[in-house]
Amino acid sequence: MIRILVVDDHAVVRSGLMSLLDGKEGLRVVGEAAEGDEAIARAAELRPDVVLMDLSMPHGKDGLTATKQLKKERPDTSVLILTMHDDEEYLFRAIQAGASGYLLKSAPHEELLTAIRTVARGDAYLYPTATKKLMSEYMEQWRSGEHAGTYESLSEREKEVLAWTAKGYSNKEIAEQLFISVKTVETHKSNLMEKLGLKTRPELVKYALKKGLLQFE
């Protein structure tokens, strides 16, 4: 039996999801929460297998922050993001936070059930169009030579800065981790992005994912 905690700031949405899921074969809704802090507390109390997490919850802790803390406290609990944001940056930030899956609220009910069962058994789930989009972008970037630089061309320190940056750490936090100055971190970051042909943070995160540099709980 897969135990589910539903987290969304809209009561009507929570009610609809609970009605949809509870009673389906192998599924049981054990609770609900309206914002991130409540979700973390309810997860500790109810010990769900899967937390169905909204991203945008203006009152209280947002879904990304709650996911990161929840995974730190309960690494065996899978978080499936259910959101209206069809946005690549949100997708990567959710993965960084430790989410096992990302699904749009416009998805068919059958896909939601599939996603829940997928993350519950420890696998990852992305909605199909996101997967196609990412693959297409990777292919286009490599064909255009945008990522002409190689990982091996980076210094050991640049590799460390790349990994910490991709995990969401600020320049100051990276400096503290590596015992170097913030200015030095900025220099390493600038150099590594130039070597790899990267221009934006999402590109850096995608590169780190492709290289297997991000290890999540």
Rank of each mutant, 00 (worst) to 15 (best):
V51G: 01
S144T: 07
M18E: 11
L162R: 07
K68A: 15
L162H: 07
A208H: 04
V12W: 01
A208T: 07
G168C: 05
A120T: 02
S181I: 08
A34Y: 02
L104S: 11
L213S: 06
K68H: 14
K68T: 07
T114C: 04
G36Y: 04
E160Q: 15
I40N: 00
E111K: 14
S170H: 07
M84F: 13
Y125A: 02
D87K: 14
L213T: 05
T184P: 01
S190Q: 15
L104D: 10
E89G: 03
K199D: 07
S153T: 13
Q177E: 14
K133D: 07
S19I: 08
R3V: 01
L178M: 15
E140H: 07
R28I: 10
L82D: 03
S19E: 13
T129D: 13
V6A: 08
K71Q: 06
S19A: 13
K167A: 15
Y138W: 14
L55G: 04
L126H: 10
V185A: 04
Y207D: 03
R93T: 09
E152Q: 11
D54K: 04
S155G: 14
R157Q: 13
W164D: 04
P202C: 07
K133W: 02
V205P: 01
L192V: 08
T150R: 15
Y169H: 11
I95W: 12
E89R: 14
P48I: 00
T114Q: 12
G197F: 06
A43D: 00
K24Y: 03
L52W: 09
E176S: 14
K183A: 15
V13I: 14
K211M: 15
L27S: 04
L55F: 11
A166M: 06
G60C: 12
F92I: 05
A39I: 03
G98T: 06
G149M: 11
E176W: 01
M139Q: 05
E111T: 13
G60Q: 13
Y125T: 03
K72V: 08
A124Y: 14
K172W: 04
H109N: 13
S170L: 09
V161A: 07
E146Q: 15
